[in-house]
Write a protein that binds this DNA or RNA. Structure first.
Lengths: 337, 337
DNA sequence: AACGTTCTTAAGAACGTTCCCAAACCCCTC
DNA sequence: GAGGGGTTTGGGAACGTTCTTAAGAACGTT
C-alpha cells in the first residue's frame, strides 16, 4: 500500500518553518498573515495532514459523535429512524454511532454509563423496556440524553413520544366505520413500553365503541418480529374468528397477513388488517397494509434536533414533544390499490 | 439530574491516597498488593470512575471502534450486514460506528481519508461504485480497510466478494428447468459494482442456455430501491411479456411482484419472479420470493473477522474470499407455500 | 551487618491538540 | 528617534491516560 505518512501539527510546523500554535491557528481559521497562512496550508497539503480526533477531543471535550441506541437494527421502524437521524446529525457536523442494544435493560444501562467514557457528545435512545435502574442511570448521566418513546411522567428528561392510544383509536374508528366489530389485537410483549401503550389504547378504543372485548381476541407475540407474529396470529385464528386484526407494529401485521393467506382467509373481504408505524414494509406488503403512522421519522427528527440543541445549551428547559398519529389507508382495509 | 461528578485517575488516586500510576495499574490488572488494590477499587467505585476513552486512545493509539460504511441503511441487505457485523465486532470488544455514505464516491473518499483522523481502528466498506480515486484513497490509507464486494484484480486489499454470475446462473437454471424462456432482468444502475456484475452474469447465463437475448427483456432501474423498481418493471411490461423476471436485488424483485399484481399477471403461473440477496424482504413478500442468497450475512461475517485479524496482524497476507451463492426457492417460482 | 535480589510503588514523560499569555514586530504619532 | 498602540507569532501548559524508569521496601544470602 502507498503508505500515507503519519503526520501531526509538529511535522507540519517544522515543514512550514513556523510554530505549532500558528499552524493550529491557521487551520482553525484564526487570524494570520497571508504569507503564514499560505506556508501552513502548503505544508499541510503536502504532508496530507489530518487532525487527530482524540487529541482534539481531549483538549476541547467535544467528540462530534452522537450515539443512537436501538433495540434491533432489523426492525423497519428503527431503520426509518436511523435514516432520518443520520441526515440531521450529519448536517450539524456530527457523526452517528449506531449501537444495537437488544431489548435487555442491563446492556442499556451499560450504554448509558459508558457514555461517561466520553465517546459521544450525546445519546439518542429508544428503549423497549424502561426499568427504575435505567431511569436512574439516565438521570445521573453527565451527558445529554434524549429518549424517543414514553417516559414516566416525573422523569425530567427531554423526550419525544408517540401517541399510541390515539393512533389505535384512529385504526379502530376506521375499522368500525367499515362495519367491523370483532377487532383483534396481535400485540408484542406487554412488559415493553410500546406493548403496554398499545394494549391500553386498544382496550380504551374497544370500550369507547362498545365492541366485544373478549380476551380471545387478544394475543401476545414473544417479540415484535415477523416470526413471532406468525405464531401469535396462528394462535389467534385457532381461538377466534376476528373480522379485523390490528398488529402492534408493521412486522406483526405483515405476519398476520401471511398467516391469514395461509389459512385461506381473504383480506380485506373476510378480515381487515391494520399495522402500526407505517414503515416501508407496509407499502411493500401484499395486499398493501393500512398502517397507523406514529410519526417515527418525525419523532427521530425532533429528537435529534432536541439533542443537538441540548448539547449546545445544556441548561435549556426540558422538552416533551408528542407527535400526533395519522392513518395511512391502503388495500388491507379496502383502501385504493 | 443527579449529576455524577466528573472523575479521573487523579481524583481516584487522591481519594485512595496512592499515586496515579498505581491506580492505572490496578484498574488494568497489573500486579499490586491486596491492600493497594482494595483501596483503589473502593475509591474508584465511590467516585463512579469511568476511564476517558479519548485519553486512552491518545496514549495507546487504539479506539476500539470499527466503522461500517454502507450506501443506504434502508436496503435490507445492508441491514442484514449491520446485524451480523454488530455481533462479531462487539464480541471482539469493538463498538460499531455505522456510516451512511450514499452512493456518491466523493463522500466515500472523504470517509476513507477521515479514517486517518483516528476515530476508528479499521473500516469495513461496501462501495456501490468504485472509482480510481477511491481505490487510490483506500490503498494509501494508514488504517486497515476491508471491502465487501468485488475489487479490480490488481488491488491489494482484503476483500470478500459474492459470486453474482454463478448466482444468476442458479436462478436461470432453476427457471429454465421450469420451462421458462423469456427471462427478463430488472437491473439497478449498471455503473455500480453489483449492477455490472449482475448484467454480465445474466448475459452469460442466457447465452449458455441458448435463450433469446432481446434487449427488450432488460431494463435498468435508477436505483436499487422499491420505487425505482416499480417504474422499471412497468416499462418492462410495456415493451415485452417475459415469463420470468429476475430482480437484481430483493427490493427490485418485490417491486416487480407488486407491479405484476397491479397488471393482473399471476405469479408464478404467468410469470415467475426471482430476487437476489435473500433478505427478510423475500420471506415477507406475497407470494414469498425465490431469491439468490449471495451470502450477505456470511460475507459480512467474514469481512468483519478479516478486519479484526488485520488490525491485530497488520502484515498478514492479503485475503480474497469468495462466498458461493445458493438459491432459496419459494412461492414466486412455484416453490412450497 | 553488608550486600544483592525481588517485589511494590511513585514520578514523570509522552500522545496531539487547543488556547492563554507573553514576546516580537510593525506602523504611526509626537 | 523614542514611545505608544495594534497586530502577528511563538512558548508552553493543559486535557487524562499509559508505560518506562527509577526509587524504595522487604527479604534472603553471604
Amino acid at each position: 500500500m502507498a503508505e500515507t505518512p503519519k503526520s501531526n501539527l509538529q511535522l507540519v510546523a517544522a515543514k512550514a518553518g513556523v510554530s505549532v500554535s500558528s499552524v493550529s491557528r491557521v487551520l482553525n481559521g484564526g487570524s494570520a498573515s497571508e504569507d503564514l497562512a499560505r506556508k501552513v496550508r502548503e505544508a499541510a497539503a503536502e504532508l496530507g495532514y489530518v487532525p487527530h480526533a482524540s487529541a482534539r477531543t481531549m483538549r476541547t471535550g467535544r467528540t462530534d459523535q452522537i450515539t443512537l441506541a436501538v433495540a434491533d437494527v432489523g426492525n423497519p421502524v428503527y431503520v426509518q429512524m436511523m435514516r432520518t437521524v443520520t441526515g440531521i446529525v450529519a448536517k450539524a457536523g456530527y457523526r452517528l454511532v449506531v449501537s444495537s442494544t437488544g431489548s435487555d435493560p442491563a446492556s442499556q444501562i451499560d450504554l448509558v454509563t459508558s457514555l461517561n467514557r466520553g465517546y459521544a457528545d450525546g445519546l439518542l435512545m429508544s428503549p423497549l423496556r424502561i426499568t427504575e435502574d435505567l431511569v436512574e442511570a439516565m438521570k445521573s448521566s453527565r451527558l445529554p440524553i434524549v429518549v424517543i418513546g414514553t417516559l414516566p411522567a416525573d422523569v425530567e428528561l427531554d423526550n419525544v413520544r408517540a401517541d399510541s392510544a390515539t393512533g389505535i383509536g384512529l385504526a379502530v374508528e376506521h375499522l368500525v366505520a367499515q362495519g367491523r366489530r370483532r377487532i383483534a389485537l396481535v400485540n408484542g410483549p406487554v412488559d415493553t413500553v410500546p406493548g403496554s401503550a398499545r394494549l391500553a389504547g386498544y382496550l380504551a378504543a374497544i370500550e369507547r365503541y362498545g365492541l366485544p372485548t373478549s380476551s380471545e381476541l387478544q394475543v401476545t407475540a414473544t417479540a415484535f418480529t415477523y416470526r413471532a407474529g406468525r405464531k401469535a396470529t396462528a394462535a389467534l385464528l385457532g381461538q377466534a374468528s376476528p373480522d379485523a386484526i390490528i398488529g402492534a407494529n408493521d412486522l406483526l401485521a405483515v405476519a398476520a397477513l401471511k398467516e391469514l393467506a395461509a389459512a385461506g382467509v381473504r383480506v380485506p373481504r373476510d378480515t381487515a388488517v391494520v399495522g402500526m408505524d407505517d414503515t416501508d414494509a407496509a407499502e411493500l406488503a401484499t395486499p398493501s397494509l393500512t398502517s397507523v403512522d406514529l410519526g417515527s421519522a418525525k419523532r427521530a427528527k425532533a429528537a435529534a434536533k432536541l439533542l443537538i440543541r441540548r448539547i449546545q445549551e445544556p441548561d435549556a428547559p426540558v422538552s416533551r414533544i408528542v407527535i400526533p398519529p395519522a392513518l395511512s389507508i391502503r388495500e388491507s382495509t379496502g383502501g385504493p390499490a
